[in-house]
Amino acid sequence: MVARPLRRLSPGWILVAPFLALVLTLFLGPIINVLWLSITDPEPGLGNYAALFAEESSLARIIWTTLRICILTTVISVLLGYSIAYAMVHVRDSSRSRMLALLLVSFWISVLVRTFSWLMLLGRNGLVNNSLEAVGLISQPIEFMRNELGVLIGMVHYMVPYAVLPLLASMQVIDTRVLSASRSLGATGGQTFWRIYLPLTKPGLIAAALLVFIISLGFYVTPAILGGGKVLMVAEYISVQLLVTLRWGTAAMLAALMLAGVLALLFVMSRFMKLSTIFGGART
């Protein structure tokens, strides 16, 4: 296209304007307001941030819990997602569409419904414990809920489809002749996988890991319900500050930290894969 002089703005902007205006006024504006609160409420200064380093502070523990659970969720989800994506690009078309259907149905089932299901399955008298007791594998019910194990199960279950989508996007564009070349030059299947295939899927792996980690960081529903108040993560702690103790300053400070982390990771992710490519893979 011919570069236009700056003074003549493209008429396309008129169509962009309504949504842009809505996001600026209802989203960006108030987010900046929240960031401002983190250094002005209850009093101007960095007091809210200093509280992070105070001794006896529960904040550092909550952030550490959040990071630990998010890292574990990311590692497990990406490993499981890799297996699914790999199988999906290497099966017949008919099987692939069946696999994609299962993946997308799980993607579409409401997070509340899925969390409720885990509540029914993992409780002390849940189906899992009852079945294990019935076959005599355990004598005492396993504590799945109100601990990190339950939160981890629920979060991984939610995140696996998010991990699969970028991996699929990167695996689908791999030129399979490269793999055949590797095999015909005498490499074993294992060598071809580790030295050729895996490095080729690196952008997808990085995008998948970052996407899962970003979504996990702000996850609220599953930790709040399956953690049962015992596993406090940042998002739930923010909600307690807002709804119960009404300490907007602390909540805003945590939101600012979370936002900074998310934006930094998004920036890194954009180096490897565009957001629209990832979600574009979800189309049937």
Binding site: I215, I238, A252, A255, V262, L266, F279
Partner: peptide
Amino acid sequence: LVIPPIISAMA
């Protein structure tokens, strides 16, 4: 789409 919903809720 990617900003944590809890932050959107505050906003």
